[in-house]
Protein backbone atom coordinates (compact mmCIF):
# COMPACT_ATOMS: atom_id res chain seq x y z
CA UNK A 1 0.00 0.00 0.00
CA UNK A 2 1.28 3.50 -0.78
CA UNK A 3 2.51 5.73 2.02
CA UNK A 4 1.14 9.20 2.53
CA UNK A 5 2.56 12.07 4.50
CA UNK A 6 -0.02 14.79 5.00
CA UNK A 7 -0.74 17.66 7.38
CA UNK A 8 -4.34 17.86 8.50
CA UNK A 9 -5.56 20.66 10.74
CA UNK A 10 -1.97 21.32 11.71
CA UNK A 11 -1.11 17.73 12.62
CA UNK A 12 1.23 15.59 10.55
CA UNK A 13 0.03 12.09 9.63
CA UNK A 14 2.16 9.37 8.04
CA UNK A 15 0.05 6.44 6.96
CA UNK A 16 -0.37 3.47 4.66
CA UNK A 17 -3.51 3.67 2.60
CA UNK A 18 -5.20 1.52 0.02
CA UNK A 19 -5.10 3.37 -3.33
CA UNK A 20 -8.87 3.33 -3.67
CA UNK A 21 -9.44 4.94 -0.26
CA UNK A 22 -11.24 8.23 -0.79
CA UNK A 23 -9.95 11.26 1.07
CA UNK A 24 -13.28 11.77 2.83
CA UNK A 25 -13.21 8.21 4.16
CA UNK A 26 -9.62 8.66 5.33
CA UNK A 27 -10.66 11.79 7.23
CA UNK A 28 -13.81 10.32 8.75
CA UNK A 29 -13.11 6.62 9.22
CA UNK A 30 -9.37 6.59 9.89
CA UNK A 31 -8.84 9.91 11.65
CA UNK A 32 -12.29 10.34 13.16
CA UNK A 33 -12.71 13.80 11.64
CA UNK A 34 -16.43 13.37 11.22
CA UNK A 35 -17.11 17.09 10.96
CA UNK A 36 -16.66 16.62 7.22
CA UNK A 37 -19.88 15.09 5.91
CA UNK A 38 -20.64 12.82 3.00
CA UNK A 39 -23.72 14.15 1.28
CA UNK A 40 -24.40 12.97 -2.26
CA UNK A 41 -21.14 11.05 -2.79
CA UNK A 42 -21.35 12.02 -6.48
CA UNK A 43 -19.29 15.26 -6.62
CA UNK A 44 -22.41 17.40 -6.67
CA UNK A 45 -23.39 18.64 -3.24
CA UNK A 46 -20.11 19.87 -1.71
CA UNK A 47 -20.92 18.73 1.86
CA UNK A 48 -17.50 17.04 1.94
CA UNK A 49 -15.56 20.17 0.95
CA UNK A 50 -12.19 20.64 2.63
CA UNK A 51 -9.27 22.91 1.80
CA UNK A 52 -6.35 21.19 0.06
CA UNK A 53 -3.36 23.52 0.04
CA UNK A 54 -5.77 26.35 0.71
CA UNK A 55 -8.35 25.75 -2.04
CA UNK A 56 -11.70 24.02 -1.79
CA UNK A 57 -11.93 20.40 -2.90
CA UNK A 58 -14.68 17.79 -2.74
CA UNK A 59 -13.03 15.12 -0.62
CA UNK A 60 -15.38 12.44 -2.00
CA UNK A 61 -13.79 13.01 -5.41
CA UNK A 62 -10.19 12.74 -4.36
CA UNK A 63 -8.11 9.74 -3.41
CA UNK A 64 -6.27 9.85 -0.11
CA UNK A 65 -3.06 9.12 -2.04
CA UNK A 66 -3.59 12.30 -4.05
CA UNK A 67 -3.40 14.23 -0.78
CA UNK A 68 0.15 13.01 -0.11
CA UNK A 69 2.38 16.00 0.56
CA UNK A 70 -0.49 18.48 0.91
CA UNK A 71 -1.85 20.50 3.77
CA UNK A 72 -5.53 19.99 4.50
CA UNK A 73 -7.93 22.02 6.59
CA UNK A 74 -11.31 20.60 7.57
CA UNK A 75 -14.11 22.34 9.39
CA UNK A 76 -12.57 21.02 12.61
CA UNK A 77 -9.31 22.86 11.95
CA UNK A 78 -10.88 26.22 11.26
CA UNK A 79 -11.35 27.54 14.79
CA UNK A 80 -8.44 28.95 16.75
CA UNK A 81 -7.52 27.91 20.26
CA UNK A 82 -6.73 24.39 21.33
CA UNK A 83 -9.57 22.70 19.48
CA UNK A 84 -12.07 22.73 22.31
CA UNK A 85 -14.44 24.58 20.04
CA UNK A 86 -15.34 27.39 22.42
CA UNK A 87 -17.52 29.94 20.61
CA UNK A 88 -15.03 32.76 21.22
CA UNK A 89 -12.42 30.76 19.24
CA UNK A 90 -14.67 30.21 16.24
CA UNK A 91 -13.63 31.47 12.82
CA UNK A 92 -15.55 34.59 11.74
CA UNK A 93 -17.46 32.48 9.21
CA UNK A 94 -18.51 30.02 11.91
CA UNK A 95 -19.64 32.91 14.10
CA UNK A 96 -21.53 34.49 11.21
CA UNK A 97 -23.33 31.28 10.21
CA UNK A 98 -24.43 31.04 13.83
CA UNK A 99 -25.42 34.70 14.23
CA UNK A 100 -27.23 34.95 10.86
CA UNK A 101 -28.76 31.47 11.19
CA UNK A 102 -27.16 30.41 7.90
CA UNK A 103 -28.45 26.87 8.29
CA UNK A 104 -31.45 24.80 9.18
CA UNK A 105 -30.59 21.09 9.44
CA UNK A 106 -26.88 21.90 9.35
CA UNK A 107 -25.75 18.99 7.20
CA UNK A 108 -24.33 21.14 4.39
CA UNK A 109 -22.80 23.65 6.80
CA UNK A 110 -19.24 22.26 7.14
CA UNK A 111 -18.81 22.22 3.37
CA UNK A 112 -20.61 25.52 2.94
CA UNK A 113 -18.25 27.20 5.41
CA UNK A 114 -15.10 25.70 3.87
CA UNK A 115 -16.19 26.88 0.40
CA UNK A 116 -16.90 30.30 1.88
CA UNK A 117 -13.36 30.40 3.25
CA UNK A 118 -12.03 29.68 -0.24
CA UNK A 119 -14.34 32.33 -1.73
CA UNK A 120 -13.31 35.06 0.72
CA UNK A 121 -9.62 34.30 0.25
CA UNK A 122 -10.03 34.98 -3.47
CA UNK A 123 -12.50 37.80 -3.12
CA UNK A 124 -12.58 39.56 0.27
CA UNK A 125 -15.47 41.85 -0.72
CA UNK A 126 -17.88 39.81 -2.86
CA UNK A 127 -21.23 41.08 -4.12
CA UNK A 128 -24.33 39.02 -3.40
CA UNK A 129 -24.15 37.67 -6.95
CA UNK A 130 -20.51 36.71 -6.50
CA UNK A 131 -21.32 34.91 -3.25
CA UNK A 132 -24.12 32.94 -4.91
CA UNK A 133 -21.89 31.96 -7.84
CA UNK A 134 -18.95 31.33 -5.51
CA UNK A 135 -20.99 28.80 -3.56
CA UNK A 136 -22.43 27.02 -6.61
CA UNK A 137 -20.52 23.91 -5.63
CA UNK A 138 -22.47 23.55 -2.40
CA UNK A 139 -26.11 22.56 -2.22
CA UNK A 140 -28.43 23.37 0.68
CA UNK A 141 -31.88 21.79 0.65
CA UNK A 142 -33.28 23.72 3.62
CA UNK A 143 -32.47 27.40 3.70
CA UNK A 144 -33.05 28.72 0.22
CA UNK A 145 -29.56 30.19 0.68
CA UNK A 146 -30.79 33.57 1.89
CA UNK A 147 -29.21 33.47 5.35
CA UNK A 148 -26.13 31.70 4.02
CA UNK A 149 -25.50 34.71 1.79
CA UNK A 150 -26.10 37.04 4.73
CA UNK A 151 -23.64 35.06 6.86
CA UNK A 152 -20.93 35.24 4.21
CA UNK A 153 -21.52 38.98 3.80
CA UNK A 154 -21.27 39.46 7.57
CA UNK A 155 -18.09 37.40 7.85
CA UNK A 156 -16.54 39.22 4.90
CA UNK A 157 -17.15 42.53 6.65
CA UNK A 158 -15.69 41.13 9.86
CA UNK A 159 -12.59 39.84 8.12
CA UNK A 160 -12.06 43.09 6.22
CA UNK A 161 -12.39 45.04 9.45
CA UNK A 162 -9.79 42.74 10.99
CA UNK A 163 -7.64 43.55 7.95
CA UNK A 164 -6.52 40.01 7.33
CA UNK A 165 -8.48 38.35 4.53
CA UNK A 166 -5.38 36.39 3.54
CA UNK A 167 -5.01 34.90 6.99
CA UNK A 168 -8.40 33.21 6.97
CA UNK A 169 -7.03 29.70 7.28
CA UNK A 170 -4.71 30.48 10.14
CA UNK A 171 -1.05 29.68 10.52
CA UNK A 172 -0.75 25.93 10.27
CA UNK A 173 2.07 25.58 7.77
Amino acid sequence: MPDIDVRINGIRYQDHVEPRLLLVHYLRDRLGLTGTNVGCDTSNCGACTVLVDGTGAKSCTMLAVQADGTEITTIQGLAGGEGAGAPEDWHPLQKAFNAEHGLQCGYCTPGMIMSSVDLLQRNPDPTEDEIRHGLEGNLCRCTGYQNIVKAVQAAAGELRAAGAPGAVVGGQS
Binding site: S43, G46, T49, V52, T55, G56, A57, K58, T61, M62, S115, D118, L119, G134, L135, E136, G137, N138
Partner: peptide, 8 residues
Protein backbone atom coordinates in the same frame (compact mmCIF):
# COMPACT_ATOMS: atom_id res chain seq x y z
CA UNK B 1 -18.65 22.77 -13.15
CA UNK B 2 -18.36 24.65 -9.88
CA UNK B 3 -15.48 26.22 -7.92
CA UNK B 4 -14.30 22.98 -6.31
CA UNK B 5 -14.38 21.17 -9.65
CA UNK B 6 -12.38 23.99 -11.24
CA UNK B 7 -9.81 23.83 -8.43
CA UNK B 8 -9.01 20.18 -9.21
Amino acid sequence: GDPQVRNR
